[in-house]
Structure formats: C-alpha cells, structure tokens
Amino acid sequence: MKILIAPDSFKGSISSTEAARIIESAVKTVSDDIRTRTFPMADGGEGTVDAILLGTGGHRIVKEVRDPLGRPIQAALGWMPEERTAVIETAAASGLPLLAREELDPLSCTTFGTGELILEALNLGAETIVLGLGGSATVDCGTGIFEALGARFIDSGGQVLNSPGGKLGSIAEIDTSALDPRLGSTNIVVASDVTNPLLGKDGAVHVFGPQKGVTAELLVPMENDMAHFARVVSAHTGRDETDTPGSGAAGGIGFLLRSLLSVTFRPGIELIMETSGFTDALPEADLMITGEGRVDGQSLFGKVPAGIGRLAKQHGIPTAALAGSIGSGIEALEEHGVCVVHPIVSGPISLEEAMNNAESLLFESAVRLIKTIRLMPKQ
C-alpha cells in the first residue's frame, strides 16, 4: 500500500510540515511495510513558503521588517535563485500568530512589513513573486504594503498619512508616482483561497474582521471607511474591483493589488500541488491522508482537504481527512472525494488542552485511522 500524506497546518499548534511528519510516523508505527510520501500543503496562508520550497529546493532568507504593530521582527521569504522567484506569506510579517489576543488592534495594525519583504524580493532580482494571502492580522486594505513600496495616501488637507490603515475614511487622494518601478516588470502571482468581495456582508470587514479584533461597534464605521477608500481607489485607477472575487482577501489586500498592479490570482492549494511534485506522485497512491485544524462546509471553498480530495477523486483514490474540530456541512465533502473526516480528539476536551496536546492527539488519531484501514478486506 502507498499513502500520500498532504496536510495543511493545524493553525496555532502544528505546521503543515510537522503534521506531515507526525502522520507519517503514525503510519510507520502501525506497519512499516506501507510506503509513504509527504507533501506539506498550504492554501496561501501560513506554511506556503515552506510547502513550495520543499518541492523546489529553494531556501529561506530572513530580513528584519515591521510586525503588524510596527515593531521590528525577523521574517522570512523563500528564494529560488535559478527561477528568480520569491515566495512571500502575508502571515510572516503581518500575521495573526504574531500578536497576543489582547494586542489585536484593527485600527493600528499594518501590512507594512509585507511590503518590506516584497522590496527585499525586488532587491534580490526577483522576476516572479508568489504572494500568499492568508492569516493576516490586518484590515488595512493593503495600504501598508503600498506605503512600503512608495505609494502615498493623502487626506483632504494635503497631508500624507503615515500608517493609513486605520484612517481609510480620511484618504482623499492616492499618489503612486513614486511606486517602485520594478513592480511593473515583475510577474506577481497571488496565492489565495478566498473568493470574498471587498465590501458587504461577505466582505473583508464583516467576514474576517471579528477574528482580527473588529468589535460589533466597529463593524459599520470600518465598513463605511473601506467603502470610501474603495471609491477613492476606483477614481484613481478608472476601474472598480470591489466586487471582484478575492478582493476581500487578507483584510482587503486583494483589492488594492488588483487595483494598482497587474497580478494573477491562483488558488493557493492548486499552486502548491503543482510546484511540490504532488500531482506527479498522486497516480501511484492507494490512499490520500490530508487534514487541518477545522473541517466543515466552508472547507469546500479553496481549503486544502477539498482541493486534495477533488484531485485524488479524479484518479479514483480515496481521501481521509484528520481534523482538529469538525463543523456542520462536512457531508458535502464526500462529493469532492473526502470519504471520511476523522477527529483527532477522542472525547470532550477544552480548546486550550487540545492546542497544547495537538501533536500527540494527531499521532494517536492517525494510528487509529490506519488501524481501521488495515482491518478492511482487500479488494
């Protein structure tokens, strides 16, 4: 039997690389005659750099940049010198895991550090930049990124606004005359699993804002400020990207990327499956094992388990998913190739306890899954 192991991260507890290692160890504990290959996955968020580098042989470059609150932090980008390609995650410099819960501040958090990583990629001579959108702590519509790249955001009195993310409603004009000219000749590929528009009940503020500290009292004023900013951007560019799928990604970064640059959006999971060698290895597999922190009906929309399941189903290969928690709507995943969703917890447990013991829980769950599979009669 040959098993391919391709999990996403179990956010806040286990990286996709660690998850793949743990699951493989569990498989070998049950039976050392099962052949395995591991392919850590990501959907554009945390783990995207490592997942792509594992498949391409590139390396990490660490640079001091600003975190979401403007503090110095060491963040890494992936660099493939032969391909002249850089891989950047917004989560590396602008991500939620960089802040404690009490530090979440949607009116102060900025994506400036992600812009600094993009500048580093340009300085390296990147001809292609893969930018993974996901896991950001920001709702600044990407203004911090473009501030770092040379754009200026100006209020009605002619004053340049520094860290304009929390002042979207005060921006009256955008000056892109000093935007780094190298961006115009760089192929920018945006890896994102998000199809949400910028505004409305399915937009950046209402859907993703609460997890980033947007309170119920802030929802309407922040939505109004973002709508105002969108009108300013549309007046500047002559086109309106607010309803374009993916514009709401990473607190509105998708919108400003689409508006100010020529970019190509790709589902993160598809991009990583291609670059990692996963698609070439898949036809030889008898079983797929994937997983992530939470699996529910929303997993159909660009998430790793559904993406893995769909591709495996095309080759007639069953997929099992290990999940930190299971929500409603998982039945729909069966149509997309995920035959079973297996929880990693075996009984009532607090979130804190589950997070603290995630590695052992994942290992034990994978052992139970493989033992169950070994009981099945061979066809």
Rank of each mutant, 00 (worst) to 15 (best):
N224W: 04
N224P: 00
G248Q: 11
L218H: 09
G213Y: 03
A191S: 12
H206P: 06
T215G: 12
S185K: 15
S177M: 05
L260C: 12
R239G: 08
L198A: 04
S234E: 07
A204V: 05
P197V: 11
V263P: 01
T264Y: 01
P181K: 06
G254P: 06
L198K: 03
K212V: 09
V194K: 09
L271Q: 12
T186G: 08
N196Y: 07
V214G: 10
G209F: 03
F265A: 04
R258W: 12
L261D: 06
P197N: 13
Q211I: 14
A285P: 05
T195N: 14
T195W: 01
A216P: 04
P181N: 08
T176L: 06
P267C: 11
G213E: 00
E274D: 14
K201F: 00
T237Q: 13
L199T: 13
L261W: 05
P181V: 07
G246N: 01
V233G: 02
K201M: 10
M222Q: 09
G246W: 11
P283D: 11
G213M: 04
I272K: 02
G251T: 04
L218F: 05
G268W: 02
G200K: 13
A216E: 15
T264K: 14
M273K: 14
I253D: 04
A249G: 14
I188E: 06
V207F: 02
G184P: 01
A281K: 01
S170V: 01
L168D: 03
A216F: 10
G200Y: 08
K167W: 07
G203K: 13
V189D: 02
G184Q: 15
I171L: 06
F208C: 10
E284H: 10
D225H: 11
G166E: 10
L218A: 14
F265H: 08
V194Q: 07
D202I: 00
V207R: 02
P245Y: 04
N196C: 14
I272Q: 06
R239W: 13
L271A: 08
V205R: 02
F265L: 15
S234I: 09
A230Y: 00
T176F: 00
V220C: 02
L183H: 03
G203F: 08
T195K: 14
